[in-house]
Nucleic acid binder design. Sequence first.
DNA 1: AACTCGTGGAC
DNA 2: TGTCCAAGAGT
Length: 300
Amino acid sequence: MSDLSALHDTILTWYAAQARDLPWRRSPEAWPWPEVDRPWAVLVSEVMLQQTPVVRVEPVWHEWMRRWPTPAALAAAAPGDAVREWGRLGYPRRALRLHAAATAIAQEHGGVIPANLEDLQALPGIGTYTAAAVGAFAFGIRSAVVDVNVRRVEARLVTGAEHPAPSLSAAETRLAEELLPAGDREAATWNVAVMELGALVCKAKTPQCERCPVLDACAWVLAGRPAHDGPRKRVQKWAGTDRQVRGKLLHVLRDASGPVPRSKLDVVWPDAAQRDRCLASLIEDGLVEPLARERFRLPA
DNA sequence: AACTCGTGGAC
DNA sequence: TGTCCAAGAGT
């Protein structure tokens, strides 16, 4: 197990047996929806999965693929439709950015998702992680996909720490690149396999070490599972924050079929100053469109 | 670089 | 309305 290729074999074998059957993971050969553009399906799934659990993403993803099977289809819709169909996935600016990305793909890339990391990352809402993920999973590009799961597996298995640092370091990316198998196809599968190991076994709060295929190689376990000493990512407050108020305002607008008078928004939060500030920020973000006579709606 | 941007489930 | 967490991005 000290050998890198043995580590590859062990985790890839575990993945082949234990991986969840998620729709956006279907291979091009096994893609069941001929009308749905597969790279687009992968891209949408990755944006939806940003900070959001799989179980909540899956039904929304299916509905998005039914309504908007290609970037051009979403680009032809109103941005407000994307926000409404986003439902309660959270961080609704992601829906707006997905719509903007679809527009950019339609107008600047001929409706074809660019198959290189630089052009992918230039799209709205696509950062380092998502560009690498789409590159690897949609196009087989050999690139390290470093999400929080990968970082946690690296921290425990290699570094011997219980948790990764609050933010991604260059050293972590370099380590992920060093661990990548040589072949393009193996590298792509390796990326998703390590992510899956972090999601199903090497969990943040309650690691399932008894189910871990690389337990005997884990630096953290071999060190006696020492408690975390460094700084952790701080947990954000929720109650009473602008994020809560924005969520309540947008909830009203999502559930309405047309324009909503201000009086319908006033009832969601007692603090008028905070309410007004949040409504203004939603308008500034492009998530809400103000109309005449104090009426509001999702953007047309 | 620290901060903001939703939401709901598991403890 | 407790704490922690979930395939981050943008500023």
